[in-house]
Design a protein around this nucleic acid. Structure first.
Lengths: 193, 193
DNA sequence: CTCTAACGTTACAGACCGGTAACACCCTAG
DNA sequence: CTAGGGTGTTACCGGTCTGTAACGTTAGAG
């Protein structure tokens, strides 16, 4: 009955990882506390000893997602140290991989849509984290020597956001299939200005 | 106790309109049958006499939304008969108005995100209706004399989809604020090719 | 070994959900 | 006037949800 290494992981981390995975796959409102704890190999009481409420768990999941995103940015810098343009192309590639390997878009955006209450505690977190991502992309474009850096960054942001949503409504054969072509075309176009 | 004209509208239509409005504002999973019937000035039994289930009601709401969208296209043609390029610009203006006047994006896309089950009956409807919208935009671009019509149409689609999602996560000051500039820039760029 | 803190188990509260049954009512077509 | 279809009312079913209480168990630090 030993689950080996898995059992060595602290319940809190197991809950967090399981919740992230299940929220991502089935949506926040589509997953209950019981389902999470069972999948994490623990129980409801333990969950509520580590998280104040489901909303609190949601927020922690979003923070963890933001953490993963930040790790991506560090990977870009590590793989192309100093070469900001190469990092921008790496961003496009990463985004495309994300579109191909996963049919459920961005956790932040999905959460923002699901949690329609304007005063939901997660909304502020989503906004902050999304703004941070936007800023990083703007800086990357600027440091890559692109004139209208903000406009390119915002355009790329909307394209990716749109592609991840389109993927969920019309599937992988829809407009999102052209994402790389669009993004690379835009970068080329902006560099020529 | 007479509600005047409102009372003259058949319960089915009142339910449909109310459900559309509430699903749009609060999300599908965020609105219950009881809340809809109460807001529509009727009751649960009457709803279930006109709709097989909540899923059925959802689907009918989406069809109604698609109907409204089709009315938009006819308005473009009526306002700029034969002038496809003007109609394309009208599409951009319409999209921008939509972004400014409403903080909750596209009902289809939101539903696709909320209804994460891959076999949900609404998914097929969403896909069909979204594909129809895509086709109309492609034809419009083509008839406007644009060479890479599919690519422009898909890019504009993703931009709008992304803008509507971004609006919900970062608000109106985010990347979506630049939507018109992006769209018009793209049209100009594609026309020059 | 003992003490303690984390964890597990069971049961339950209270609310809400989608959906149905039975029955009373009203308005209109004939 | 009357028959009947559409509508309203009430009560209910079974299920699921978040969150809590009380108590038993385990494992590691000292």
């Amino acid at each position: 009955m030993t689950d080996g290494i898995v059992e060595r992981v602290r319940p809190r981390d197991r809950i967090l990882e399981t919740a992230r995975d299940m929220f991502h796959k089935h949506g926040i409102r589509g997953v209950g506390i019981d389902a999470i704890t069972e999948a994490a190999g623990t129980n409801k009481m333990t969950l509520y000893r580590h998280f104040e409420s489901k909303d609190d768990l949601i927020i922690e999941c979003l923070r963890a997602t933001a953490c993963s995103a930040n790790a991506m940015w560090e990977k870009f810098e590590a793989e192309h140290p100093g070469d900001k343009l190469a990092q921008l192309h790496a961003w496009v590639r990463m985004a495309a991989d994300c579109l191909m390997s996963d049919r459920r878009g961005c956790d932040m955006a999905n959460a923002a849509i699901e949690l329609s209450e304007t005063d939901h505690p997660a909304r502020q977190v989503i906004k902050e984290l999304k703004e941070a991502q936007r800023e990083r992309l703007v800086f990357l474009c600027r440091d890559a020597g692109i004139g209208q850096a903000e406009l390119l960054a915002d355009t790329l942001s909307l394209l990716l956001e749109g592609a991840r949503v389109s993927l969920q409504s019309v599937g992988s054969e829809g407009p999102s299939a052209q994402f790389v072509r669009m993004a690379e075309g835009l970068i080329t176009s902006f560099r020529a200005r």
